[in-house]
Amino acid sequence: MASTVNDASPAVAQAPKRRRRRLGRLTKKEILVVLGMLAVPVVVDLAFVWGPALASVVLSFFRWSGVGGLHPRACRPSGGLIQDNGCFTGVDNYHRAATNYPPFWPAVEHNVLWLLVFIVIATPLGMLFAVVIDRGIKGSRVYQSVLFLPVMLSLALIGIIWEFVYSPNYGLINTVIGHNQDNNLIDWLGNPHLNLWAVLVAATWRQAGYVMVLYLAGLKAADPALREAAQVDGANAWQTFWRVIFPTLRPINIVIIVVTVIESLRAFDLVYIINKGSNGLELLSVLVTNNIVGETSQVGFGSALGVVLLVISLIPISIFLYQNFKRKEGR
């Protein structure tokens, strides 16, 4: 273990830290360096992420199949199969989502449930794994590797793995517990009261490993001198962690919180590969996908759903980050 004791930084243990030192005025040359550092990433992010995202906001007020251009005029009723296209519909798409799109509200509900399960189970589990591994118990490398495995697998493989596990007649669970006959089978993925939970097991399986690795990297970066200082004082491991290490990991904890929220709101692939997110597995991002990416797409309507998703995730995260920064600056 390379946790070499280094006497050079003993003062750090004296929390809270001193007020963050402003780095003083920047010279002209430094300003240029800073601009150079920021230019490319900012332009790339604006052009390829924010530009299209804002365009989607505009699209959400149109009825558009993705073919041809947009026209600044109101939509005309069609009557038959072929509809008016590329025309302005105002907030109709939003109205339709809220009042006349059966999967919408179940999707909102499932996203919330997903978030709760991640907050209560998946993320704490991943953090626990990281803490235990960080304490250097025997075989920690093996545990770490295995727990991280699900994160590394492609969606195709994950889909197959859980199909093998949950398949009603041939699957692992039903065969082992003897419920694979037609008169007694448990329909893990088809029963709308059951399937979300079944999928959440798979999602937790993946999320815990993900959180573990991020957190582990955070723990490794934490100053070992802290621990030593605390333990020399006679604190036990539990106390050491909660009183000394956990507070210094605040930035990493923020990462974990944000990642948890993002992952629950963006959750998509597992349910999509199972049944395109229908019949009890509705999630917002799947609805977005089903409407935007598809044979004849409803890009306008799908964009409206995307905007809803964006707004409900953007608001809490922005407030959280802003608050967090303010506090940091103010110290």
Partner: peptide, 9 residues
């Protein structure tokens, strides 16, 4: 019809 159709490929 075979039961549990919604979960069967």
């Amino acid at each position: 019809l075979q039961s549990g159709a919604n979960g069967r490929i």
